[in-house]
């Protein structure tokens, strides 16, 4: 008999792998990608393909240069590419998209050790880098593609910046338009319907837990109402849906367990509304998630799960 394999238990392994989780995320993002092409036309597809291709290439080259095992196959770079594209305006110069992809993969992901090691969400941070590097093109919003018109796309404000700068409280937002996404904004953030379909798919497939999205959205709604804003508008406008379902749930940069996830999501929600209400930026989702990413280790340090049956630690020093 050949020598037997001796290894530590368990001798069984589940079927989930990093690769098929990432594939599920890609499937979950597909409705949003399709919606973006329908809403903004074929140029949206160009932006998405540019971002995916440059992310994959950046990952491949950086692993080669660093002489590390190749990780393109886990598909996480494809997810980053799609998420970045969905966070860009359709009129973006493709070279800027490439710049963003390289920043996301090389600087934010690979320089910190690759998958599982980045401390902030690569796609979101790349968006922030692009916003600060190229403020004008990054906020050049195009109205939804008008299939009946022959002229070039019309420049417009996003509903959120409209609310902020035009300051026209009388013009009630059209919720239906917000829900379907037929308005100005980034590629993937406009169509709430498509994002919710993708998010529900991920929850059903148990790729993400509903804890973060539900808490995040609920916090935004409650806090928005408290400040006298329009909660439904706040939920549907801007990048909130995309952020709540696909960005805040990023494994690497969000907490590992239930209680810390609740704190994380509440923090995201509060920051989002604070930025929208008091900040000079029209949109607060990217910053709020990235800020909460940064304090995730801190949350995990203070909000700990208690081991099975372990008695509660008594706080305070008692009679000293």
């Amino acid at each position: 008999m050949e020598k037997l394999i001796v290894s530590s238990s368990p001798h069984f392994n589940g079927k989930k792998t990093t690769q098929n989780i990432m594939l599920d995320v890609i499937i979950g993002l597909t409705p949003a990608m399709i919606a973006s092409v329908i809403i903004f036309g074929i140029r949206a597809a160009v932006v998405i393909i540019t971002c995916i291709a440059s992310c994959v290439l950046s990952e491949y080259i950086s692993r080669r240069v660093m002489k590390r095992p190749q990780t393109v196959g886990d598909l996480s770079c494809v997810v980053t590419g799609i998420l970045l594209a969905l966070n860009l305006p359709v009129t973006i110069n493709p070279l800027m998209a490439v710049f963003g992809s390289v920043a996301a993969i090389v600087v934010i992901k690979q320089m910190f050790g690759g998958i599982g090691q980045n401390f902030v969400n690569p796609a979101l941070t790349a968006r922030i880098i692009l916003m600060n590097s190229f403020p004008a093109p990054m906020t050049h919003w195009t109205a939804a593609f008008d299939y009946s018109a022959t002229a070039d796309a019309v420049t417009t404000a996003t509903p959120l910046s409209g609310m902020m700068y035009v300051n026209s409280p009388n013009s009630a937002p059209d919720y239906w338009q917000l829900f379907l996404g037929t308005h100005g904004g980034c590629l993937g953030e406009t169509c709430a319907l498509a994002i919710i379909i993708g998010g529900v798919y991920l929850i059903i497939r148990k790729v993400i837990s509903p804890v973060i999205p539900v808490t995040y959205l609920a916090t935004v709604a409650v806090f928005s109402a408290l400040l006298g804003r329009d909660p439904l508008f706040d939920l549907l406008a801007g990048g909130l849906m995309l952020g709540a379902f696909f960005m805040a749930t990023d494994y690497t940069t969000s907490p590992l367990y239930f209680r810390a996830r609740i704190v994380f999501a509440i923090g995201c929600g509060v920051l989002t509304i604070l930025i929208r209400e008091f900040g000079s930026l029209p949109e607060g989702v990217s910053y709020s998630i990235v800020l909460m990413n940064i304090i995730t280790p801190l949350i995990e340090r203070y909000v700990k799960p208690r081991a099975f049956g372990k008695p509660k630690e008594k706080k305070g020093k008692g009679a000293a």
Binding site: I5, S7, I115, G116, T252, Y257, P305, A307
Partner: peptide, 25 residues
């Protein structure tokens, strides 16, 4: 069935934490 599976980097997905009956990490 005795085949060893490949090990890749931890992605911090939290599945091990959710699966632990002793509520450990």
């Amino acid at each position: 069935e005795a085949q060893q599976y490949e090990t890749t980097a931890c992605i911090r997905c939290g599945r091990c934490v959710a699966a632990c009956p002793m509520e450990l990490m």
